[in-house]
């Protein structure tokens, strides 16, 4: 067992342990580098592509370290000049934020009721909510299509906001319920003794305390709404109302054979950037939310 830079140890026992320790260190460092490479390489490749000129993109063998004259902003400029890309961004943000706020407003009271109020049939309701988190959206798509058509909601933000609210309610109920279960009951009891009714107690005492849990849930709900594809593909057909995932997936060239790799790469970068930022700032909350009952791929 030979490893780098071993301090001289007076006792043989300690030395043996140290050797084992540092060879483990080396392996671990390699493993960490592999994890980082695995997670980042595809995104970095797309990022690099988005800044390369068309000649550099289609160079064989590939250009990994482009010269300054092989770099360009043009693909980004094109996105915003030739496409209503700001519209796409706005649509995604508007639909995701609205549905997130709605699912918090609707799901949190339900979570409280399921955590505290000993409803008859609460176990059945909880079981159903758990199962529903497993349903792929394709199961809902035909029925929702009929509703959207019957209600004349095609090309209306509501056609996305309502389903997105619904798909995030189970998550909200599960995360918020486990949060309420952790809160000491005394708090609510003493509020009741002080003469608060349930509604006042909820809004004036509990709500301020739930803000961190609401943020956690909200981030997850926002991610799921921003990323949704099949409903957005089906219910919205007007170009200026499309959301990012659909609009980018449909970016095409002038002909079938001319695929605009550069703009597609740039669009991918712009569309994923908000989510990368969310992860960078809220990693802890995302992990916490995902593991505290909100489990979804």
């Amino acid at each position: 067992m030979t490893t780098v830079q071993q301090p001289v140890q007076p006792q043989p026992k300690a030395e043996a342990r140290e050797t084992h320790f540092s060879s483990k260190r080396v392996l671990l460092t390699i493993a960490v580098i592999l994890v980082v490479l695995f997670s980042l390489a595809p995104i970095l490749w797309q990022l690099l592509t988005s800044f390369k000129t068309n000649q550099a993109i289609s160079a064989v063998p590939n250009v990994y370290f482009p010269r300054p004259d092989q770099l360009t902003w043009q693909h980004y400029v094109e996105l915003f000049q030739r496409r209503p890309f700001l519209n796409y961004m706005f649509n995604s943000a508007f639909v995701a934020v609205t549905s997130t706020l709605l699912c918090l407003a609707i799901g949190t009271p339900a979570a409280y009721a399921l955590a505290r109020l000993r409803l008859k049939g609460e176990r059945i309701i909880l079981g159903l909510i758990l199962i529903v988190t497993l349903f792929p959206y394709i199961l809902l798509f035909l029925g929702l299509l009929e509703i959207v058509r019957a209600a004349g909601l095609a090309n209306n933000y509501l056609a996305l906001i309502i389903p997105y609210t619904a798909i995030n309610i189970p998550l909200t109920v599960l995360v918020m319920r486990s949060f309420f279960l952790q809160l000491p009951r005394d708090l609510e009891d003493s509020a009741k003794v002080d003469g608060y009714n349930t509604w006042q107690m909820l809004t004036q005492i509990l709500l301020p305390m739930t803000v961190p849990a609401l943020v956690t849930t909200g981030i997850l709900a926002f991610i799921f709404a921003w990323n949704e594809y099949i409903f957005a593909l089906t219910f919205i057909t007007r170009e200026t109302m499309k959301t990012i995932p659909v609009a980018v997936a449909q970016l095409g060239g002038a002909t079938l054979f001319e695929i605009p790799y550069g703009p597609i790469a740039a669009a991918t970068v712009v569309g994923t950037l908000p989510l990368v930022l969310l992860v960078l700032f809220f990693q802890r909350r995302i992990v916490q939310g995902l593991t505290s009952g909100a489990v979804k791929g």
Partner: peptide, 29 residues
């Protein structure tokens, strides 16, 4: 930081990831 990096793929829109991987597996480039 490593944990943060490791959960990035999960958070990204699948439709866009599909484009990324189609580009990675592109037959010409």
């Amino acid at each position: 930081l490593v944990r943060t990096i490791a959960i990035i793929p999960w958070a990204l829109p699948t439709a866009l990831i599909a484009l990324t991987w189609a580009w990675i597996f592109n037959d010409q480039f």
